[in-house]
């Protein structure tokens, strides 16, 4: 089973210890080296809180389940503050190749059950996760086709 980023964003988050809904997924950060989801936020804006992957039980169902509401925490380094600020968001971000060409914008991303990136879909085509190089406030960078 696969999960699309566009469906993951906004998905309800439920704590399995209390069965209470504690919010909805706001932002998702993907590590360019491994393609893994390395953090998500619950909520958006100033009230967004970070949840580490080790506290996440499942992302591929109808809701995202986390171990406990106590696992949510404030952003505590620059990278997490960038995540909360939306600078690590992939959707709609312009896509540049390592050769300096612009090749559309991110339309969606596909993850497997374990939160590992499989495919980046852009407005102009698809890039396998292996081509994914970096994401920041300006662009998502993918390897040029001939490299």
């Amino acid at each position: 089973m696969t999960v699309n980023l566009s469906e993951l964003i906004g998905r309800k988050v439920v704590a399995v210890d209390t069965a209470e809904q504690i919010g909805a997924i706001g932002h998702v950060r993907v590590d360019p080296g491994t393609g893994r989801i390395t953090a998500m936020t619950v909520g958006k804006g100033r009230k967004a809180q970070v949840v580490s992957p080790d506290a996440v039980r499942a992302i591929a169902g109808d809701v995202v389940t986390v171990t406990s509401a106590a696992a949510l925490r404030e952003a505590d380094d620059d990278d997490e503050r960038a995540l909360v600020g939306g600078d690590r968001d992939l959707l709609r971000r312009r896509v540049l190749t390592t050769a300096g060409y612009e090749v559309g914008a991110v339309a969606d991303c596909e993850f497997d059950d374990d939160g590992v990136l499989q495919v980046v879909r852009t407005t102009e085509g698809e890039h396998l996760a292996a081509a994914f190089r970096g994401v920041g406030s300006y662009a998502v960078v993918v390897a040029a086709a001939d490299t």
């Binding site: 971000r93 390592t98 190089r133 970096g134 994401v135 920041g136 300006y138 662009a139 998502v140 960078v141």
Partner: peptide, 12 residues
């Protein structure tokens, strides 16, 4: 005038 963009972080 072209942006200088980092490959590892996607920042201009």
């Amino acid at each position: 005038g072209l942006p200088v963009v980092t490959i590892d972080r996607g920042e201009d």
